[in-house]
Amino acid sequence: MTHLIEARDIHLAFGETPALRGASLAADAGEVLAVMGPSGSGKSTLLHCLAGILTPDAGEVRFDGERIDTLGEAQRSALRRDRFGFVFQFGQLVPELTAEENVALPLLLNGTRRTAALAEARPWFARLGLDGLERRRSGELSGGQAQRVALARGLVARPRVLFADEPTGALDSLTGEQVMELMVGAAREQGTTVVLVTHEPRVAAYADRESVVRDGRATSLSAEGVAP
């Protein structure tokens, strides 16, 4: 079976420092996969390789059966724009834009006309409990609100894969769980695969399964057959 997104035996070093040493990982369509591991284990680097932000020194990265690690920067950039969505630890909203313009941004970058893009962005505000905040700028939003705006931006273009790197890392635990609830709910509704990097077990427990990265290698473990 072909996985939707897959890393096969990838290696990557930053100068003399190896970050990934033969990491393999795969997620299927519609699956929510948590990538866990201690700080410095390589889990964010692995996510960046899967998302085509970094290219590995060795090994393969495939999306929908096609290799993407061999693509040029322009093609990978187009892939990230058209097929992938992103949510990072700190929302990284564009401060000069309003919340609704931030949500509409991926559509605008895809060439959608402004009025159509904003029309598509607006329903996300009610959906994520952000009613009335459409015209605010990022400085006027709380951490939880900003992260929900970032989540809407990550999902608005209906990406095949949403990459989320410690999306609750800057939030208190209650707000973080609200964001997770919304993220997983919305992703499942539209069939988006989620690759979620986190070091928090309570966040990872929203995923269908988890993979653990240790010393630049990933292991997927199943607890099937284990006493409940």
Partner: peptide
């Protein structure tokens, strides 16, 4: 420890 961690995570998913 890996096997135990997987069993714990499975239980955490059920509780979530």
């Amino acid at each position: 420890l890996d096997t135990q961690r997987a069993a714990h995570m499975r239980r955490m998913r059920e509780l979530t």
